[in-house]
Design a protein around this nucleic acid. Structure first.
Lengths: 157, 157
DNA sequence: GATTAAATTAGATTTAATCTAAATAGAGTT
DNA sequence: AACTCTATTTAGATTAAATCTAATTTAATC
C-alpha cells in the first residue's frame, strides 16, 4: 500500500539528476546510474504514472524578464469558511503564483510576482477587493538567497 | 541596455509553453508559435545565454515520496548583520529549500520540506541551534491550493 | 531601390526517444 | 536444488527530435 516502498535508490538518483537539469538525455542519466536507457524510460514512466513526477518546468529569472518584485502575502479572511471561494478568486489573478492553507495567524499564505512597485500596488488593490478578505500583510522579497530542490542525497557528507 | 527590449512575444510564448511542459519538443513548440524549429532553438539559446532561462527542473509530488510536511519559517536574528552567516549555515541544511530577505518582522523567511512531524522537529531543532538565530515562527502548510508559473498571457480573457 | 546586417528557414546529419522481443533476475513452490 | 511464473532489464531496431550549416528571407539604413 505504501507508495514509498515502490521507490528505490535508482529512482531517487534518476529524479535527483533530472531535477538538476530536466533536459539531460536519458542516455546520459543511464550512464550515471549504471543502467540501460530503457530502464530509465521505464522508471520515469512508472514515476509519472504514480504521479510522483508531474511535469517539468523551466527555471526562469523573472527579474530579467521585468518582473522585479515578488512578495509573500499573509491574508486574513472575514470567516475561515470562505477559504475555497477566495482561492478561486485568487486563481483568477495572474500574478498569484502560489497559495497555501497554513497554521498560524494567516488564513491564506500566498506569493505574488509583479513587474514593479506600481504593478504591485495594482495587484494588492485587486486582492484586497476580493470578497471575504479582511486584510493582508505584505512581505516584499528583497533578496532570494536560497532556492533549490530537496536534496535526497547529501553531497557534502 | 534594457534586457526586456530584446524579448518579444515569440520569446514569451516559447517560455510560456515550455514552462507548462519543459519536455515538449521544439518541433511542437515551433508549430504552435508559427516559426521553424530552428528559430525556437536560436531563441532558447539566446534566452539561456542571457540567463533568463536558467535550467529545467522536475515538478515532483514530494508527499508521494514520503515528504509529507512543508513549512514556512519566519526567522528572527539576534543582529541583522548576521544575515549572510546564517544563510550559509542554512545552505548546509538539506531540508531548507528556499530562504529570502524580506521586509516585515522577520529577518529571514525560509521554507523547509520534511518527511513527518518527527523529522520536522529535528530540522527545527537544528535550525534553532544556528548561531545568530534568535527565534523562529513556524507556519505549517496544510494544503497547497495554488502552485503555478507566472502567466504572461491571460488565458481567461 | 541598393546595400548591409540580422534573423529565419529548409534540409542534411547526428543524436536521442521509443518500441519490441529476448534475456535475465527474483520469488515462491515442490 | 530444479522448476515455474512474473517482473525487470537489456540490446537492437525504428521513429522522432536535436543540432548544424548554408541559403534565403526579412528588416534597416543610407
Amino acid at each position: 500500500m505504501d507508495k514509498i516502498l515502490d521507490i528505490d535508490n535508482i529512482d531517487l538518483k534518476i529524479i535527483s539528476l533530472l531535477n538538476e537539469d530536466a533536459k539531460t538525455p536519458y542516455t546520459e542519466i543511464a550512464k550515471k546510474v549504471f543502467v540501460s536507457s530503457g530502464t530509465v524510460h521505464v522508471r520515469m514512466k512508472k514515476l509519472e504514472d504514480m504521479g510522483i513526477v508531474k511535469s517539468a518546468t523551466l527555471n526562469i529569472d523573472f527579474s530579467k524578464l521585468g518582473y522585479d518584485i515578488s512578495a509573500f502575502l499573509g491574508i486574513y479572511l472575514e470567516k475561515s469558511s470562505l477559504y475555497d471561494n477566495v482561492i478561486e478568486r485568487l486563481k483568477g489573478i495572474a500574478e498569484v503564483v502560489s497559495a497555501y492553507y497554513t497554521t498560524g495567524n494567516y488564513s491564506i499564505f500566498a506569493k505574488i510576482i509583479c513587474r514593479d512597485t506600481n504593478h504591485l500596488r495594482l495587484v494588492l488593490d485587486s486582492i484586497q477587493k476580493v470578497d471575504g478578505i479582511d486584510r493582508t500583510e505584505t512581505l516584499i522579497v528583497l533578496e532570494e538567497s536560497i532556492n533549490r530542490p530537496i536534496q535526497f542525497f547529501d553531497k557534502e557528507k
